[in-house]
Amino acid sequence: MILHPTVIANLLSSAIATGMVVYAAYYGGQILKFWNLQSGDELQLVLERKTYLISTILSFVFALQLLSLFLYVFTADSLTPLFVGAMCAAGTLNVNGFGYPTLLLKIVNFLLAGLWLVLNHADNLGYDYPLIRKKYWLLMFIAPFIVIETVLESAYFLNMQADVITSCCGSLFSSEKANGLGSEIAALPSQPMMWTFYATLLLTLLVGSYSYLKGKAGYLYPVLSALMFVIAIAAMISFISLYIYELPTHHCPFCIVMQEYGYIGYLLYILLFLAVVSGMGSGVLLPFRGLESLRDLLPAFISKLLFLSVSSYLVFSTLVAYEIVSSNLVM
């Protein structure tokens, strides 16, 4: 265990998140069990009030989730000097087996949490809590993931021992060694990856704009936006990072959040997260368009989500294009 202030902050934030989600899930369970809008029972009144509490708690927890995702990478970065061979977050996360699973889970949890907030907002639009059961089922689904994340994160930090030799980002993400998840992505040749990236991007933007302008939202865009998210991350490792670092061998997806690169990474990742959450959120809401109380309000919300998603991808790709064009690296 490394008693570093930032490590303590990480552990504190995940403990808080878990505590609050478990608390919310407990009342969520009660709502699932006893909810009956027709009843004027005291319990029903209490539950209706509890929904406000749960929404507030979860909005807070999910905001915390986003912050803690970045804090986690940040911490991994700042612990680098303690490990032989680690040069950035990539090496530190590899110190023990819990580093990368925690990161992955943090990303997944953030996406799930974002979808929950979208559902919650839609639910608040209608006067009769139209989505209340769905949203609490989703909460029941998310809660265990948050708990597991906290367990893994604690295991990661508590099992950390300074001086353990770890591979640095130079070897983990460089294309010479073909092992490990990182290097497989890096080993994706940059030319084909570039074409895949741009083609998917173009398709996503076209489908998104079409859906938005014609007002005909379909399931194609949500799927594309999720696919685009994965491809964008792969592209980040495969070639975008190269242009930002201006080094043909440096594939690390973490170093771009560092000060040396003007914190550009935060902007890029936040845009990506925004785009994928709102894109997938628009898909999650599609089946509920027919509900009585949402019929008039939901399409407007869905098209707002579409707009948000498409414009985030657009800004993202503009930024990436700018980075590539203005880079001194020519490939």
């Binding site: 902050a9 406000y52 507030t56 804090l71 940040f74």
Partner: peptide, 27 residues
């Protein structure tokens, strides 16, 4: 890094402590 850590160690516990009382007051 220092400022973020500080924020996590002070503002977040404070916010957590006030959520439930706020909800009580608001309902």
């Amino acid at each position: 890094e220092q400022l973020t850590t500080l924020f996590f160690l002070t503002v977040i516990p404070y916010t957590v402590a006030t959520i439930v009382p706020i909800w009580r007051a608001a309902t």
